[in-house]
Design a protein around this nucleic acid. Sequence first.
DNA 1: CCTACCGATCGGTAGG
DNA 2: CCTACCGATCGGTAGG
Lengths: 225, 225
Amino acid sequence: MCPPRSEPPSALAGEPPAVPAARPRGRPRKAPDARDDGNRRQLIIDSAARLFRTQGFDATSTRDIAAAADMRSGSPFYHFESKNALLHAVVEDGLQRAVASQQQALQQLPAAAPPRERLAALVRHHFEVLFGPEGDFIPVMLYEWRSLTPPQRASIDRVKADYEAQWMPVLQALHDTGALRAEPALARLFIMGALNWAVQWYRPDGRLSLDALTGQALRLFVGDR
Amino acid sequence: MCPPRSEPPSALAGEPPAVPAARPRGRPRKAPDARDDGNRRQLIIDSAARLFRTQGFDATSTRDIAAAADMRSGSPFYHFESKNALLHAVVEDGLQRAVASQQQALQQLPAAAPPRERLAALVRHHFEVLFGPEGDFIPVMLYEWRSLTPPQRASIDRVKADYEAQWMPVLQALHDTGALRAEPALARLFIMGALNWAVQWYRPDGRLSLDALTGQALRLFVGDR
DNA sequence: CCTACCGATCGGTAGG
DNA sequence: CCTACCGATCGGTAGG
């Protein structure tokens, strides 16, 4: 069942499929020849992300996804060449949004913000992505990595590297001051592991707020000041 | 696609199936009526653990498991009533062994061993389980939790609680001395998350030894002394 | 994007 | 524990 296939490198990027002129059939749309294909595609991605997260990739049928997107069973294949390509789109799409919002979170800090405050912003942002409404892609990435082909993994790794690279100068600075007591590269792996693990136990509607969670994580890793 | 089914609580424990007198057929065994059923059962569990880890539960067919255990397709069902019951056995079996070996690791410490040394032993032991030859069950537990029924989860949670409970007095002591700077219960979740995450990136045959890995983790969480 | 369909594979079982 | 098999479901496609 779905052994990872090798694909030519050219199949890497999630290029939008060439879109033939859509002739509306069945129930008419508001605008008869509106190009809402982008919306339909995004709807499939969002539906799939939710289902992949809650049920797993293998346990989600393309029929489930079609139904969640209010389509018939064969229709997702009009937008994606395979179930696997859809998984890739879910992860890469979400990751690209996260890179952008993380950059924004850092830029909103004062230019003179100390490294500890920068790390707080990164941790807080990471939790927001994990537990926000568009955060399904992270558990999907973590849990369904196996189901991605090697070229798909490479493509995602490139975006992930951008995300992680923004952590390194902050961790390096904290290591220089002595607040961070492990080697920065290793510390990043441990810290992001600890944060990602929170999807297993943290419930956003519980007693512990995201702010309190961020504060505890920060104290554990780099102390109070 | 294996939707979680609810089961009567009596189906909880992985009781060994009632074993009818096995009449050997085909190639004769060394001892014609040897009761090696326990070995066969364990062989299935070990084969399944490896396959579940490398391919995932849904992506592993019962035929794959049978082949890995050198049996025909229907034979695993002689030992386990369902593929799901086998998953449960894989996880509970591994976890019970881990609880026992962890207790042993603690007992081998000098009675006067300071809490930092106790934590080092726990972390080191945890890594050994994660990366040892019988450690497949932990990734399986983490990644395939979804595929367990609620009663199966409850059964495993009881064993997992034993494992985790052994960490708490050590973390509490380190918190009392100020070495651990987050609340112990939360610190345990963060720390075990960081350690478990290592299955994603650590390679036992790489440059970093398990000892060095343990040392870096300890420094990150509780400092040098 | 829908309809209708195909070949493959799967978990599980009866009967020995 | 093997043989032979069943019903269900799946990813994907042709043709419109």
